[in-house]
Design a protein around this nucleic acid. Sequence first.
RNA 1: GCCCAGGUAGUGUAGUGGCCUAUCAUGUCGGCCUGUCACGCCGACGACUCGGAUUCGAAUUCCGACCUGGGCGCCA
Length: 430
Amino acid sequence: MRIPIREVTPETETAEVLGWVHEVRDLGGLTFFLLRDRSGILQVTVPKKKVGEQVLSALRDASRESLVRVKGRVKAIGKAPGGRELVPEEFEVVCRSESPLPLDVVEKVPAELDTRLDARFLDARRPRVAAVFQVRSVALQTVSDFLYARGFVNISTPKIVAAATEGGTELFPIAYFEKEAFLNQSPQLYKQMMMGAGFEKVFEIGPIFRAEEHNTTKHLNEATSIDVEVSFADHHAVMELLEELIVTVYRDVNERCSSALEALEIGALPVPKAPFPRLPYSEAIRMAAEATGDPITYGDDIGTAAEKAIGELMGEHYFVVDWPTEIKPYYAMPYEDNPTVCKAFDLMHPRMELSSGAQRVHQHDLLVRQIQAKGLNPDNFEFYLEPFRYGMPPHAGWGLGAERLIMTMLSLGNIREAVLFPRDRHRLTP
RNA sequence: GCCCAGGUAGUGUAGUGGCCUAUCAUGUCGGCCUGUCACGCCGACGACUCGGAUUCGAAUUCCGACCUGGGCGCCA
């Protein structure tokens, strides 16, 4: 019976394993195979004079990255990796790998990201790549557990929609029978409608689509959004929820992913400390202007250079709060005593923006005025506006980019490393 | 959308007008090798994205196409 490689220890007597041929070192009368499965690597040592003809002929066929089955005696050997090796009695090539390989799984020769993504199934055989997705899996489970434990309802909302969520032009049009439709850029409006339904706390982890033609290491055209909306909450409450979530994810990944973090050669993650600093937008602008020397003034967006400069000064996760109403979406709630400023916030990692959120406008007439103030036509938002006429509770929420969370947590150089099959400006396959 | 950079064996690279029937590594194939762990040694195989132009001569210069990477705007 097949056992995972990790379970083969120096104390094991006999073992049967299935794994991929990671490396072959043929010394002549003695051949070493390194066999790899998702749990680890095992050395198979074949003394050619002492094994049967069946083993010898299979050996010749066992090219790199072939899947093989080996059954034999385990020997405790100090100089072998893991202190043990397997001497085969049976050796079978289950599925042969062709050669040459599209990329070098052992990484003696590096491969460019583009080459790696073209052969992602092979790339993902590399332990350090697999490790990223183990961490991603654990992180997303932690997010769900965290939110379920606080009484959130997991919802699924349409990805095919009739109109833009926020009025931008950055939507992918698709053919929907005889109608025009789009891929949704955000579950924003649907989350809010469920506040109107009285669900009180909802979350969704799902794809969002942005048709922007950027070509950077931190943008994707299909990304995963962790979206949350909470009734009877203000922006302060959901910022606290968010920072607590971030801390919990880091802590859980440390606890549950030590071998993956080891494979990534980064060791234990420094866990951010809550509460994160709240940096008012006006102060952020002042810092950026001073640090960069650029003429950045109140009301400007915080561009990449400014974002980088502020990130270096802050050196940890932080919130930018109290944004000008003018540069945030119509659904962000203006302060009652100063409507030029709104209850919106961005969660920043020193490297980039991770999340943005706000307390939302829940008053129908104010929302209509804000939509108009952005130069949009409220008639196009009728399906969204309707719930606001029938007892919409005050509410707040945020959207957190899952890939950016993973990327910043693991110090990945490119966001594509945090997605199995990224969709960017040029890539539509695999 | 704007701006830069780049396409050389399966992979990663060197090569800026003749020294290129193109470098090195890895790989693959063959040979030797019983303790390797980037095994070692010997030999072989394998590439200039495409089209046009300049030139006695182009991987190298120019033009166009195709493909790619990155930056910016904007954003998660």
